[in-house]
């Protein structure tokens, strides 16, 4: 009997530790974001850093995000055709592609690609700066590292991932059009009309809201993991993996929550 209690106590102890660890991480992440935002909204403003990050996020991510969207839109149209043609419901394909891209696939795919491309590079860059004392150097040169490194990334991530989502939506729908019209021989005018008829502003806006939340989370996690990485190259590698894995899980988790909230 006593050994059962001992086992139960060890089990509860582990759960308790995990829970406290989880709460501590949430607290530390919240403090980190508050510090970054507070540092960023008080002068002086580092416009050059903000512009550099904007180019990185908004411009250099376009090819990878665009390509993913194009092929997803194409594949989805084909898959839908396979199922819908059994019920002679092919006319619904443009609407389904439109809704799926704007509400769900656009924001999630764009965010996952940005997490892989930018979240990882942010963690690696800031982590390397941390372990080579460059962040200490910033501080001793009287520059707030939150203002110089973290805020520009979070700001541009929050505002430019929605822009990428919009591009993703357009290219994804275009991919669907190409397969529908040139491969499945849909009437081009009908396809466009069906797509436009099913276009609802709120679908697009809700996708953009998701994009903003995902952008914030990706950049926050990317900076946070880098900022607190330790232990040389191995530590930076570990932080980079953590950053991408955590961001990706958070994207999918928040996607579920936001879909319910914005439905």
């Amino acid at each position: 009997m006593g050994s059962h209690f001992a086992e139960l106590s060890v089990f509860l102890d582990r759960i308790g530790r995990l829970f406290i660890g989880f709460l501590a991480s949430i607290g530390s992440l919240t403090l980190f974001s508050i510090k970054a935002i507070w540092a960023g909204i008080t002068p002086p403003y580092y416009w050059k850093q903000i512009l550099q990050q904007a180019v990185q996020i908004g411009y250099f991510s376009l090819p990878v995000v665009g390509m993913t969207a194009l092929f997803t839109g194409m594949a989805m149209t084909l898959q839908c055709y396979a199922g819908f043609s059994e019920f002679t419901a092919e006319n619904a394909i443009p609407s389904v592609v439109m809704i799926a891209m704007t509400r769900e696939l656009g924001p999630v795919l764009a965010a996952l690609m940005v997490a892989g491309r930018l979240g990882a590079s942010m963690t690696a860059e800031i982590g390397t700066m941390k372990v080579t004392e460059q962040i200490d150097a910033l501080t001793t040169l009287s520059v707030n590292s939150y203002k110089y490194l973290v805020f520009p990334r979070i700001l541009t991530g929050t505002f430019l991932v929605p822009f990428l989502v919009l591009i993703d939506d357009i290219i994804g729908i275009l991919g669907g059009y190409l397969v529908g019209v040139y491969y499945l021989n849909f009437n081009a005018a009908n396809y466009i009309r069906n797509t436009l008829e099913s276009m609802v502003t709120w679908d697009i806006v809700s996708g953009l809201i998701k994009g903003a939340v995902f952008g914030f989370v990706i950049c926050l996690m990317g900076c946070y993991q880098g900022y607190f990485s330790k232990g040389g190259a191995e530590g930076v590698g570990r932080a980079t993996t953590n950053s991408v894995v955590t961001s990706s899980i958070m994207i999918l988790l928040l996607d579920g929550i936001l879909t319910f909230a914005l439905f």
């Binding site: 460059q134 200490d136 150097a137």
Partner: peptide
């Protein structure tokens, strides 16, 4: 206060 760090800590 100026600091000369061990590895230089120049911004890459």
């Amino acid at each position: 206060c100026g600091v000369l760090y061990q590895g230089g800590a120049l911004f890459d």
